[in-house]
Structure formats: structure tokens, C-alpha cells
Amino acid sequence: MPPDTLTRTDAELSGLDALEIAGRQKETSRGARIWAATWPKLAALALAVAIWQLVVLSGWKPPWSLPGPLVVGEELLRQAGSAQLWDGIAVTLRRAAVGYVFSVAVGLLVGLAVARSTVLRAAIGSMITALQTMPSIAWFPLAILLFELSEKAIFFVVVLGAAPSIANGVIAGVDYVPPLLLRAGRNLGAHGLGLYRYVIAPAALPAIVAGLKQGWAFSWRSLMAGELLVVGISQTSLGAQLTYARELADSPWLLSTMIVILVIGLLVDAVFGAADTAIRRRWGVLDQAGR
């Protein structure tokens, strides 16, 4: 090819590239984005507290059964200064962590095995979905018969609640790997484990994270149900504190404990949300939505 043709092509190519790339940069600053995401949440929170206060002011229920936000806020501050709340959080979070980590291990292994083997899929594929639809609290009578009123009973129900969702996430992720990417991977020399490492696992990651997030939601709910039912083994867990507060008719304590439970749930959910967003941004799925 003569040299002038070559340079012409180069210039055209860079020209086209520059035109194509231009205008794809995002301009919004980080601060503006954080503010845009935060203020609606703050506004909603303020609205909720205002409605709460109005209901209390309306005198619908006596103040000793439904205290106002100020009373509960004071109680929350007092609790934050006491060891009891922090002990409760520690007990509950330790149980959540142990149960969840175990659920993740079981869910990933079972999910991978079912996704790989047609026999296993025929055998237990639909059973996993069936397990997922079972309300976890329905497991407790059996769990208590098997393990008595113990940590083991709670653990059993937490794992049964969370592992099926995680397994289903893995199965869905592996099933929906685009066949084109599989063929490309095989042509590039990926076989067996290599195909899993370079194509299947990363392609399945968004679905797996969705399964992990759902699994967390299930395990957190099961744990709370378990702590309410299986009281007495540890005095301080958050669920046990709810039960005691009810028995003592100490509604400020009850409501402040509920707020703590809600906040923990929200924080963990935010972590999963951030992971999900990070993945989608990497994949370029977010850009299409204009975010």
C-alpha cells in the first residue's frame, strides 16, 4: 500500500474515533451527584417523622403505647450510651455474619453444582425454588424440635432462608451467560476451568450479586424472627430486647430498638447496592440509563 494511502487512513480513523468518543463524557460533579441522591431520602425521612408526630398528637393511641419521635429519640441517645444496645448489636451481627457466610458457601456450591449438572438440575432445581417460596418462620417449629431453643435452631433457619436465593442467583447467572461470549471465550482458548474463570464467573456476577442481596434480606428476616421466638439463650440480642421491651410495655425502648434494626438493614443493603452499581457502571449498563 502506498504511504499516502496509509496516512490518509490513519487520519480518517483518528478523526472518526474522536467524533465517536466526543460527547460521551459525564459532566456532573461528585458532590452534585451525592446531593441529588441524598436529599430525596432526607426529605422522605423528615416527612415520615412529621406524620408520626401528627399521629401521636391526634391522640389515636395513648402516649405510653405510642410515644412520639422526641421521646424515642431521647431513648435512642440514652441507649447509645449504654453497653446493652452495643452488646445486642454485637450478638445479633455475629449471628447474622456466621449464618450468612455459611449460607453463601452452601448457596454458591449448590448453585454451581446444579448449574453444571443436568442430573442435579432435574433432581433439585425446582426444589431450590420451592424452598425459596417457603416463609422462613414456618421452619421454626421443626428447627426447635430438632435443636431445641438454641443458637443452632436460629442458624438452621437462617441458612435455609438464605442459601436457596443465593443458589438461584448462581444458577440464573450461569444460565444467562450470552452464548456469543462463551463461543468467543472458547475460540480464545478457554476450556473447562479457564472458561469459568474468564467468561462464566464474571458474566454471571451481576446475577450472583442479586442473589447475594436477596439472600441477605432473607437471612436478616429469618434471624429477627428467630431471635423473637428463641428467647432466653442470650439476653441481649436485638430480637430478645424487642421481646423484653414488649413484656415490660417499654415502648420507647421497643421503638428505638426497631430503629436500630432498620438502620442496620439499610446499611447492609446500601453495601449491596453500591456493589451492584459498581458492577453495572463497569459493564456500561448504567450509562444507557443516563446515570
Binding site: R183, P202, R282, W283
Partner: peptide, 16 residues
């Protein structure tokens, strides 16, 4: 030799 194959779509790995 193992031939290289290109498709109509780029088939790039979006996570890389």
C-alpha cells in the same frame, strides 16, 4: 493451527 474467529458483534467481555 487453531483459527481465530471474529463475529458480527464484537463479543468483547464488558467487564474488562
Amino acid at each position: 493451527a487453531r483459527p481465530g474467529l471474529m463475529f458480527q458483534e464484537p463479543a468483547l467481555f464488558p467487564w474488562l
